[in-house]
Amino acid sequence: MKDLFDKQVASLRDYHFLILYWAAKAESQHIKYNITNAYDDLKYHRITRTKQSAVAYIESLTTLCFLSMVEEHNRKNLYITNYGAKVLELLYSQNIYSIKPSNFLEG
């Protein structure tokens, strides 16, 4: 299983890393962070220009159980899972990607 986990982590990209980070940061500030907020932040950092791509990134993370999507008051809010937290820590410790601020949370 560890091999599988390592392979899953290795296939993630910087946008996955950023989505995980922003979702965690929002939770730490008791702010709800949803798919639209993630799309806006990705667009702000010129990572994607289409919402479909943002949704695809998020769905891949939820499929891998690194992120959970919860429908609350007609909004699909994003919460990082315990596995996602480990992934985020690991990616950060490997110094592959650097964090970028969320325009929604800090802008």
Binding site: Y21, A24, S28, G84, A85, L88
Partner: peptide
Amino acid sequence: DEVLNVLKRIGKL
């Protein structure tokens, strides 16, 4: 450290 602090705050680590 930013990321670790965030993860610690939400109790996911």
